[in-house]
Amino acid sequence: MIEFWMFNAMALLTVVPALLAVTVKNVFHAVLWLALSLVGVAGLFIILGAEFLFVVQILLYVGGIVVLLLFVVFLSGRPSDWKGRSSNEQWLGALLLSAVLFSSLSAVFRMMPSAKPVTGSPGPAILSLARILMKDWALPFEILSLVLLAALVGAVYFTRPDQERKGGGPW
């Protein structure tokens, strides 16, 4: 029973801030609503027994990506950007498309095998998680570090001032 109410609370904490994050006009507020929605997703991870993912979600998303987004909010944008509508003219079509996608996904999910609700708390998954990452999926794990390195180099390249970029960029 307590799981049911926790699920409801976390679902509310996820969906309502997400709705606000895609509708509010102020960019700063949208980033803050996104952070709250990510906290809700972290709560869902806890209910699902993925405590390591909870930590990663808080550290990486709420602590890392959201702060990065806030920095970009401060560094870019003009006051004239925040005037006028925050959504474009296609909002009705987009709303219809999203609603159709949601309802069809829900219909498909109803055909999923109705798994029995798991009872009892799961044991700590971190040991087997480490075994998967370091043993079974060791090669993808190392490739991922290359991806992160490429992202780092790309970010440094794109944000260099113009005069330092000697003939490299297209503009």
Partner: peptide, 23 residues
């Protein structure tokens, strides 16, 4: 699954309608 579909729909709506690259 329904919750994640709802979250996906909300995100898709945002991608399609926002006018600001950051949003």
């Amino acid at each position: 699954l329904v919750l994640s579909a709802l979250l996906f729909g909300i995100g898709l709506y945002g991608v399609l309608t926002r006018r600001n690259a950051l949003l």
